[in-house]
Amino acid sequence: MADPYPEAVFDAAMARAGIVLTEAERATLIGVSRHIAASTARIRTERPVGLEPATIFVPGQNT
């Protein structure tokens, strides 16, 4: 399992979103953040540099 996000990174993310947590909430979420770290690592596979995301759309279709 991945490490939790560093506290400074976590605090910066909450501040940017304007979210004020209690100390208990902050401690819980920092612990759980290891799951986010694991997920962001898992999706980074070796891939062609030009691979398009799934959200690319064709102009004129539904736009």
Partner: peptide, 26 residues
């Protein structure tokens, strides 16, 4: 509110990488 707070940790690059992984999985 706690799930949404966790979501703020995911970066813009993370989101695009997830959409690229989605294309591979599709």
């Amino acid at each position: 509110r706690e799930r949404l707070a966790l979501a703020t940790l995911v970066s813009g690059a993370d989101y695009v990488q997830a959409q690229r992984r989605r294309r591979e999985l599709c």
